[in-house]
Computed example of a mutant assay.
Amino acid sequence: MSESAQANAPRWRRLPGERPRQILDAALEVFGERGLAAARLEDIARSAGVSKGTIYLYFPNKEALFCDMIREIPSRHIATVEAMITEGATAREQLREYLRYTWDYVRTPSFEILYRLILSELHHFPDLYEQFIEEVPMRSMRILGDIVKRGVASGEFRDIEPLAAGRMLHSVLFIHGVWAAKRARIPFMRDLSDNQVLDQLVDFCLHAIGQLPAPATSSVHT
């Protein structure tokens, strides 16, 4: 096929290996606009540039597509974070990398849509809820916990339980992402740029788990 013919070919013919990802991304858009109940596979297929029948090659029904979307899309980010953590860097540097990259992710429109769907729809799928907790937030907390564990061993961080620290760091970062998405309605966020919030988060997190200063010794005069 010539380059011009390839460029004009439908997406599902040009990029067959990317069909599931295209469908999942389109599903996020349509579910985000209409919710699970009102969303139609026809609309998702149209947004993805595939036929409705193509969706059934990968997902047996709308609910299965929704469940895979909830698990797959955030898992892409986590896999990227795992791959980009610099080997040989200090734990402080790795924590900075994690916070900055994840902050960029939680400030994307796709994260905002996904978060809204998790709150509004996930209670319909109890088994999915447990899988999601294990595969997404718990996985993120373990990445952070591993960084903290290395920092404790190297003396960069104080002696703190790694997974507990990972849970706290994860929570602080993500709740600020949620607040930033609604900053016009939140007085203490309204005048802060994303970069300012990120700088505050990095500073807070590094100091929260950093080595505590040695207590001052008072001199005794005799």
Results as ranks from 00 to 15, higher is better:
Ile186Glu: 08
Asp146His: 07
Glu156Lys: 02
Ser193Gln: 03
His176Ala: 13
Val136Thr: 12
Ala164Pro: 10
Ile209Arg: 03
Ile113Lys: 05
Leu206Val: 13
Asp203Asn: 15
Gln196Tyr: 12
Thr86Cys: 07
Tyr98Asp: 06
Ile118Trp: 05
Glu121Gln: 11
Leu117Asp: 00
Gly155Asn: 01
Glu93Ile: 15
Phe174Gly: 02
Leu163Ser: 09
Pro137Met: 09
Gln131Asn: 12
Ala89Val: 13
Pro162Cys: 00
Ile160Ala: 04
Cys205Gln: 09
Ser193Glu: 03
Ile209Ala: 01
Leu163Thr: 00
Met189Gly: 02
His123Gln: 07
Gly177Glu: 03
Met138Lys: 12
Glu130Gly: 02
Gly166Val: 10
Met138Trp: 15
Glu130Ala: 13
Arg183Met: 09
Gly177Lys: 03
Leu114Asp: 00
Glu112Gly: 11
Val178Gln: 03
Leu201Met: 04
Lys149Gln: 07
Phe204His: 02
Asp194Met: 07
Leu128Gln: 08
Arg100Met: 07
Ser193Cys: 01
Met189Glu: 08
Leu95Phe: 05
Leu198Lys: 03
Leu192Cys: 08
Arg107Leu: 15
Gln94His: 14
Leu201Ile: 15
Met84Gln: 11
Arg92Leu: 10
Glu112Cys: 02
Val106Trp: 13
Ala181Pro: 06
Gly151Val: 08
Met138Leu: 15
Glu161Gly: 07
Val152Phe: 00
Glu130Trp: 14
Ser171Val: 03
Pro187Gly: 02
Ile143Gly: 00
Leu173Gly: 05
Val197Arg: 01
Arg100Lys: 11
Lys182Gly: 04
Ile160Leu: 01
Leu173Ile: 02
Arg158Trp: 13
Ile133Asp: 14
Tyr98Lys: 15
Pro187Val: 13
Glu135Cys: 12
Ala180Phe: 10
Leu173Thr: 06
Leu198Gly: 00
Leu201Ser: 08
Glu93Trp: 03
Ile143Arg: 07
Met84Val: 10
Tyr115Lys: 14
Ile209Gly: 05
Arg183Trp: 12
Glu130Ile: 09
Ser120Lys: 14
Leu122Lys: 05
Glu93Gln: 11
Arg185Ser: 14
Leu128Tyr: 06
Phe188Ser: 07
Lys149Met: 15
Ile143Trp: 08
His124Cys: 14
Leu128Phe: 12
Pro187Ile: 08
His207Cys: 05
Glu87Gly: 13
His123Ala: 11
Ile133Ser: 05
Arg142Cys: 13
Ala181Lys: 06
Arg167Ile: 10
Phe174Met: 14
